[in-house]
Design a protein around this nucleic acid. Structure first.
Length: 565
RNA sequence: CGGAAUGUAGCUCAGUUUGGUAGAGCGCACGGUUCGGGACCGUGAGGUCGCAGGUUCAAAUCCUGUCAUUCCGACCA
């Protein structure tokens, strides 16, 4: 492509609305333009990157035995009523009415539709297993779009669905997709980590992993073991249970006046104790029903774990007035003896000589010992892992990272297939429910993740695999005939060799061209300048800045080697 | 949905406090001088000041409402 013909405008200054580096650079480098919140146009350069990512995804899906389809993005809402997810998604779904006033949606994902499709097509065990995938535009009316392509309302995603005879088959299909994802991200060339995750609204009965690209711009926190390969989203992450404290020497409990206390910090100040000595109780509403959670003062409730333990659809901290009404005492004075169903975090046992709200409002007890001074009832791991926690597998310390969730694989089991009665007849003529898995990969989000990881102060530094063009030929002066002749010759020869090349044939000053070249970030730059008189050009690598001055012929060979490596 | 900020030229922003003819830099067009890391000089085009209503002789500026965008939180494959 000749740059003088390319529909590309780079921005010298950073647009004010862009806060995240990848967003800033994608706007400045002319990859995308925002239309409205969370909705973007892909310009030629941006589309080329998206297409290359999707091509890699397609190749690896095909190689893994998946077959491509294209499902409708416009769907009737009734299938969402059937699965119950219309309510789950709520306002996050774009809804519309057709001319017959029929309720329609723009699909946020496709489990419902594909399950129904497969129900209609598959009858016999002979037709299974099968994995289908598509690369689609998806719609989610996110409450808060963010960071350019990181969280969009209209976005691109590859989603695959596997259909198996039994759980063993599902395990194989799941592993095949997992492995394909690893190959995809390896080929793209970004640092990622597959982590244990919570299935969230997609649901399902089996395992699930998220593929995280490590980046401070990410919205998720990952706990990773420093000693072994364990890593998990903090929503899911569990550490070793803390050791049960030795309470033998704890004196009898004693009552202290603590007027006006509300927070753990208040208690720490007033009583001079450590937060880790305090036994706190937080009142939740689980699908509207009150439940108390008792845990150590320095620990934080993990609402996902709580939700899972309770089997609740939704949990939220009860508002202060609800706490007073339910417990008959203000926030800050609710103790483990509260007259509500109580769940205990397993690590309350680590407290000896603790502090807890007493039976009498306005007072706290000190020298409190779990089991002696209050009964520890139903117990589970209900808290977020924290600094200092140790890996449940190897005991090494856990560390925390931020990550961008670029893909997610689930074992769904029969969650959707049973609702939609997607069944088959086995060898013995018995009707059995299909085992499903689903596998999402956000192709547009991957672009943002790549740019987050691959940039420097001058601009984007594309990996060879997804660069919009692999080689940038920059003649310093388009009015120098010799330079232009060499530049054009290299351009045509590289193109003939199947290389994506961009030729900056614009009549601009060298500084402008170099700045643009760095901003756009093509991996290899051939600068054709003064040295052409001696038959030499420069080959510069964007990533390292390394420059080689080479005779034209050798430069051609070198570049071919670089781009095909 | 709660909290906050911002809407003025294509981009970055000043002007709003204290009402009085719409501004700068960059970008764009033209002419000239330049030409290996975002040149310089000159000329010029470009704006319903987010929108609606109100106050006023007069509103970018004051008041009310509304819409949009962004950030924090809640929420979220």
């Amino acid at each position: 492509m000749k740059q003088s013909q390319l529909f590309l405008t780079t921005l010298r200054e950073t647009p004010a609305d862009a806060d995240v580096v990848s967003h800033q650079l994608m706007l400045r480098a002319g990859l995308i333009r925002q239309f409205t919140a969370g909705v973007y146009t892909f310009l030629p350069l941006g589309l080329r990157v998206l297409s290359k990512i999707e091509a890699i995804v397609r190749e690896e899906m095909d190689a893994a035995g998946a077959q491509e389809v294209l499902l409708p993005a416009v769907q009737t809402e009734d299938i969402w009523d059937q699965s119950g997810r219309s309510e789950d998604y709520g306002p996050d779904m774009f809804r519309l009415r057709d001319r017959h006033d029929r309720r329609m949606v723009l699909a946020p994902t496709h489990e419902e539709l594909i399950t129904q499709l497969v129900r209609n097509e598959v009858r016999s065990y002979r037709q299974l297993p099968v994995t289908l995938y598509q690369i689609q535009t998806k719609f989610r009316d996110e409450p808060r779009p963010r960071g350019g392509l990181l969280r969009m309302r209209e976005f691109r995603m590859k989603d695959a669905y596997s259909f198996d005879l039994d759980e063993a088959g599902l395990d194989r299909s799941y592993q095949a997709m997992f492995d394909a994802y690893c190959r995809i991200f390896d080929r793209i060339g970004i640092a990622y980590r597959a982590v244990d995750a919570d299935p969230g609204a997609i649901g399902g009965e089996g395992g699930t992993h998220e593929f995280m690209v490590l980046s401070d711009a990410g919205e998720d926190t990952i706990a990773g073991c420093t000693g072994c390969s364990y890593a998990a989203n903090v929503e899911k992450a569990a550490g070793q249970a803390l050791a049960k404290a030795d309470g033998a020497a704890v004196p009898p409990r004693e009552r202290m006046a603590t007027p006006g206390v509300r927070t753990i910090e208040d208690l720490v100040q007033m009583l001079g104790v450590k937060a880790s000595q305090i036994i706190k109780v937080i009142v939740y509403l689980a699908d509207g029903q009150p439940v108390a959670v008792c845990l150590r003062g320095d620990h934080e409730v993990n609402e996902v774990k709580l939700k899972n333990v309770l089997g609740a659809r939704h949990v939220e901290v009860a508002p202060a007035d609800a706490v007073e009404r339910l417990c008959g005492r203000p926030v800050g004075f609710v103790g483990p003896d509260v007259n509500l169903p109580v769940w205990f975090d397993r690590d309350v046992w680590s407290v000896a000589d603790g502090v807890a709200a007493s039976a009498e409002p306005g007072y706290h007890d000190v020298h409190v010992l779990p089991g002696r001074d209050f009964e520890v009832g139903r117990t589970a791991d209900l808290r977020m892992v924290a600094d200092g926690d140790r890996c449940q597998h190897c005991g090494s310390p856990l560390r925390f990272f931020r990550g961008i969730e670029v893909a997610h694989v689930f074992k769904l089991g029969t969650k959707y297939s049973s609702v939609f009665r997607a069944t088959y007849l086995d060898e013995r003529g018995q009707e059995r429910v299909i085992q499903m898995g689903c596998y999402g990969l956000g192709t547009s989000r991957v672009i943002a993740a790549i740019v987050e990881q691959c940039h420097d102060e001058h601009g984007i530094v594309w990996p060879m695999s997804v660069a919009p063009y692999r080689v940038h030929i920059v003649p310093v002066s388009v009015r120098d005939e010799q330079q232009m002749q060499v530049a054009k010759s290299l351009y045509h020869r590289l193109r003939a060799a199947g290389v994506d090349v961009l030729l900056d044939d614009r009549d601009e000053r060298p500084g402008v061209k170099f700045k643009d070249a760095d901003l756009i970030g093509l991996p290899v730059r051939i600068t054709v300048g003064n040295k052409v008189a001696e038959g030499a050009v420069e080959v510069k690598l964007r990533r390292t800045g390394d420059v080689q001055v080479l005779p034209v012929e050798q430069a051609f060979e070198t570049v071919l080697g670089l781009v095909h490596r």
